[in-house]
């Protein structure tokens, strides 16, 4: 019996040569098209086409002949809109603001996430589950609602925190023009630290036990093990979280919009995305499109450069 079945399973091409060849993943098998198309069609429609459309739109301008009530015509304008984007002080300031935000907030958040992951990885398991869930919970709360909640906690009239600090002699205006960017940074940190912590934690858990035994034999203490063994080994996870954080930072929109409703210190050009949104609201589509393209390109370049420059060191 076994000898009859065995050749068929061990060397299937011997059994039914013609069918096997088409059945094998590859070559003449065209079934993949049917599987890929249902995704690819909407992907092209809602990702590729809008990008091309935005690029096309950004190369035009709308002109009115015969005064403001005259007829509007759209014509090709080359890179004129891009010139306007880069010379717009509001846009430049906005870019500077999100870059400053990213340079400070991303390392702080990831450092915080890494610290928590390392602590959870090296302490007793009993409370571990509780901590993990508590840290991750903010991720389940939509950005709008997180911002609304923190807006209450920042509000000079409503916040118990502001009141307590005031009683302690520390008067802080979380919504002041100098502080509001960092108040927003805190909301973002609050929302995403737990998510990033879990990615790093998962990578820590995947480190094989033998690595630690080797370290123990070498007489490495807990801190040294963490710094020279764990951190390098979870670097790929850190890179991944960093890339997502960079993309998120450049897109900063929801929190500023919510804070704009309660504070006068968030101008309409606070972040590039907010400016693009408000430019489009004012019906200046070619300029808004140019801003979107610049922003998308900047995001793409920044995150892929970061991926490439770190991937060697991270051993990806």
């Amino acid at each position: 019996m076994a000898t009859v079945i065995e050749p068929a399973t061990a060397d299937p091409s011997a059994g039914a040569p013609a069918r096997r060849r088409t059945g094998r993943p590859g070559r003449s098998n065209r079934a993949w098209i049917g599987f890929v198309l249902p995704f690819l069609v909407p992907f092209v429609l809602f990702y590729v086409v809008p990008i091309c459309y935005a690029i096309g739109q950004s190369l035009t301008k709308t002109e009115r002949t015969g005064g403001i009530f005259g007829e509007a015509t759209t014509r090709f304008a080359g890179l004129e809109q891009y010139g306007r984007v880069f010379s717009d002080p509001g846009f430049r300031e906005g870019v500077g603001r999100v870059l400053l935000f990213g340079v400070v907030q991303v390392p702080v958040m990831l450092g915080f996430a890494l610290l928590l992951a390392l602590l959870l990885d090296s302490t007793a398991a009993r409370l571990n589950r509780f901590f993990r869930i508590a840290y991750f919970l903010p991720y389940a709360i939509p950005g709008v609602i997180a911002a609304l909640m923190w807006a209450f906690l920042y509000s000079p009239q409503l916040s118990p925190i502001v009141k307590a600090l005031d009683d302690g002699g520390i008067g802080i205006d979380f919504l002041g023009s100098g502080t509001i960017l960092w108040s927003i940074a805190n909301v973002v940190t609050w929302t995403y630290t737990g998510y990033n912590m879990l990615i790093i934690f998962a990578a820590l858990q995947a480190i094989p036990q033998s690595v630690y035994e080797a370290a123990k034999v070498d007489g490495a203490g807990a801190l040294r093990t963490a710094w020279s063994i764990k951190v390098p080994l979870v670097l790929p996870a850190l890179v991944l979280t960093a890339v997502f954080s960079i993309i998120g930072t450049l897109q900063l929109f929801t929190e500023p919009v919510v804070f704009r409703a309660i504070s006068t210190n968030v101008p309409s050009d606070f972040t590039p995305n907010l400016l693009a949104f408000n430019t489009a609201s004012a019906n200046n589509y070619p300029l808004a499109a140019a801003m979107s393209v610049v922003l998308a390109l900047a995001t793409f370049i920044l995150s892929s450069t970061f991926l490439r420059s770190t991937s060697k060191r991270a051993g990806l």
Partner: peptide, 20 residues
């Protein structure tokens, strides 16, 4: 190409999508 889509900020797509 699909992975490139991961790196494109969804917000940059929203405006042109509206126009389309």
């Amino acid at each position: 190409l699909i992975l490139g889509g991961v790196l494109v900020p969804a917000t940059a797509l929203a405006l042109p999508l509206f126009l389309i």
